[in-house]
């Protein structure tokens, strides 16, 4: 995103905010359903900046963020560490593809949410369940895009590598992965988005900390303002994670920097 796009991209959020403010100001919706923006803003400030102990959620943000971020990053890393190599290998080797396509296709047909009960039995309530759910969900877009990217690399580039003296294994790193990089990144970004969705699902099961847990907890106490704070923060942090992921890839790989 370029700096000049920022005003434009803020347009729709601002309109939504104005509509929200108007709804509250004219009393069209009771505050326990939709608190006014100012109340949510204050709840947010309290949640993030107040000292612990000054109210039910005061100052909890940083520990919740740390907990959620750890789970997302663990699950996402697991998915990426499995999805990229498996996808690339399946995209290039017919045998590997035939071997894995059936199993992976079958697993993919299972909606991610179905894993929740099983994960709770296997891993109990806590980090492991959430990480498992996140990894399960993020794996498929990462795998599929790596596969497509690797498959679409035109033979001529591999031939060019081979004639210039690059062996098969080095060719994977010197030619194949850089060529497939745009697709790999697309998969990782989709995977990162899915990770946040499944983080919240995993945290709705009764873990004590995390942004998803706060949302669930606030629902039981009827604190709609805190729920909204949680939702907005997850949206914001999810977006920042996406930007950070792209920046990291561009920092690490020439092929990411120069082909977008």
């Amino acid at each position: 995103m370029h700096a000049k796009d920022i005003p434009l991209s803020l347009l729709i959020p601002l309109i939504a905010l104005a509509a929200w403010q108007a709804t509250s100001a004219f009393g069209m919706v009771p505050t326990y359903l939709l608190p006014p923006p100012a109340a949510v803003w204050e709840a947010g400030l309290r949640y993030i900046f107040a000292a612990a102990g000054q109210g039910p959620y005061a100052g909890r943000f940083w520990s919740d963020l740390a907990a959620s971020l750890t789970r997302v990053l663990l699950g996402f890393s697991l998915a990426a560490a499995l999805g990229v190599p498996l996808g690339v290998v399946s995209g290039r080797m017919a045998l590997a593809h035939r071997l894995t396509a059936g199993a992976i296709g079958g697993l993919r047909a299972v909606p991610g949410i179905c894993w929740l009960p099983l994960a709770m039995i296997w891993f109990g309530i806590g980090v492991k369940t959430t990480v498992f759910l996140v990894a399960m969900a993020a794996f498929f877009p990462i795998y599929q895009n790596a596969l497509t990217g690797a498959r679409l690399v035109a033979p001529i580039y591999c031939q060019a590598g081979a004639m210039l003296g690059v062996g098969r294994l080095r060719g994977v790193f010197a030619v194949l992965l850089p060529m497939a990089m745009p697709n790999i990144i697309a998969g990782l970004r989709l995977g990162m988005g899915v990770s946040w969705a499944y983080l919240v699902l995993g945290e709705l099961t009764g873990v004590p900390d995390g942004l998803g847990a706060v949302i669930m907890d606030a629902r039981m106490l009827g604190q709609t303002d805190v729920i909204l704070v949680g939702v907005l923060l997850i949206a914001l942090i999810g977006r920042l994670c996406d930007l950070a992921l792209v920046a990291l890839m561009r920092l690490c790989f020439k092929s990411a920097r120069r082909q977008s």
Binding site: Q159, P178, Q259
Partner: peptide
């Protein structure tokens, strides 16, 4: 099998798109 003793200049563009001119030329030096 392919080898650097027989190199091809293709009709289509087969340069590595993520490498600069200099890096493309140096690619074969490993």
């Amino acid at each position: 099998k392919p080898g650097p003793d027989r190199c091809v200049v293709f009709q289509e563009d087969a340069l590595f798109p993520w490498l600069t001119v200099r890096e493309n030329i140096a690619f074969g030096l490993g």
